[in-house]
């Protein structure tokens, strides 16, 4: 049996350990480096306005990535998150003309909860792998949305003004989206660090049998988790519709894979038991800045994708090395 605690810790090893315990520092360094590179390539681009815009676009990504982060703690994933966001945004816009803002937004979250319940049922009760379950439920959801669209095509749609205010407005140059995001992030931190539910997410991902030996009924945890992340995805969809100011059948699609990437870059292990939402937020910022950078360099779409993919693989490889040689 390897007994790491008895091995002498050299300075190099200690640095590695420190990096493993606090990947957030390395991520922030990377983020700052990317911003510096951007400023070097195009002097003057980094100003208040640019920062506001970057934050504005990083927020829905970071929120959708919360769905991935929380499910990944248990070793799962939520590929239906983008579909849920799209459905909620779309349905909201069709309901607002009839029911007003409040009810429109409220009712639009019902399909999100339904998909969350479906995911919960599949993952918790039928023990379908989350990847398959959420892939399937996302497709079903989008299919239902297409049917729904046919019946509402003539009735017109309108994004709730409150959401447009939240998505595009600024208060003293601070994007209003932060009024939603700051409490949201605080909520996620609280859940992951200070609640029994958060503890059990990590524990179930690290070793489900150990969690059961401590008294957990895993189905309850997965049910609650998938309903929670569906609600988060729904709220993300509402905000994103406010940012884009219109809706479509593929509203949040472009956010899905970056949301997975943000969580992974942020240091959350797809195998479960490890990670933090703080890393995911920085990850979302890194991806957003990277997008700007690649646009600035006038990279063709193909090259952008290659670089995106390469970065995800590289970062994952680094994390695997850091965490497995403990």
């Amino acid at each position: 049996m390897s007994d790491a605690s008895l091995q002498p810790d050299g300075p190099g090893r200690r640095a590695l350990l420190w990096l493993r315990e606090t990947p957030i520092i390395a991520l922030i360094v990377l983020l700052v480096a990317l911003v510096a590179l951007l400023e070097y390539l195009s002097p003057g681009i980094v100003n208040e306005r640019w920062i506001g815009n970057t934050v504005k676009f990083a927020i829905p990504l970071a929120m959708l990535a919360a769905c991935q982060t929380l499910t990944m703690y248990t070793g799962g994933i939520d590929l239906s998150a983008a579909a849920v966001a799209t459905i909620t945004g779309f349905v909201m816009a069709t309901l607002v003309p009839h029911f007003g803002q409040g009810w429109g937004i409220f009712i639009a979250l019902v399909p999100a909860v339904l998909i969350g319940l479906l995911n919960g049922f599949g993952v918790a009760i039928c023990r379908v792998h989350p990847l398959i379950m959420t892939l399937g439920s996302g497709l079903i959801g989008i299919g239902c949305l297409q049917v729904y669209q046919r019946y509402t095509i003539a009735t017109g749609s309108e994004v709730a003004p409150v959401l447009e205010w939240l998505g595009t407005g600024r208060t003293r140059s601070v994007p209003n989206a932060l009024f939603l995001f700051v409490p949201f992030a605080a909520f996620v931190f609280f859940v992951q660090n200070r609640t029994g539910f958060g503890r059990m997410l990590y524990a179930a991902g690290a070793n489900e049998r150990a969690a059961r030996l401590s008294g957990l009924r895993p189905w309850q945890l997965y049910f609650a988790l998938y309903v929670l992340v569906a609600l988060i995805a729904g709220v993300t969809g509402l905000l994103y519709a406010g940012i884009i100011r219109t809706t479509s059948l593929s509203l949040a699609d472009p956010l899905l894979l970056p949301s997975v990437a943000a969580a992974v870059i942020g240091g959350t292990s797809i195998f479960g038991g490890r990670g933090s939402y703080a890393g995911t937020i920085v990850g979302a910022l890194i991806l957003t800045v990277l997008g700007t950078l690649l646009t600035l360099l006038q990279m063709p779409e193909g090259a952008r994708r290659i670089i995106f993919g390469g970065i995800i693989l590289l970062v994952t490889a680094i994390y695997v090395r850091l965490t497995d040689n403990g």
């Binding site: 029994g196 539910f197 524990a203 150990a210």
Partner: peptide
């Protein structure tokens, strides 16, 4: 839960049941 802390592991039974999932 090998990759979690000593504290997390010892405290596990105190938070495992759904009624202890709160703060």
């Amino acid at each position: 839960a090998m990759i979690r802390s000593v504290r997390d592991n010892i405290a596990l039974p105190g938070v495992a049941r759904a009624r202890n999932w709160g703060a």
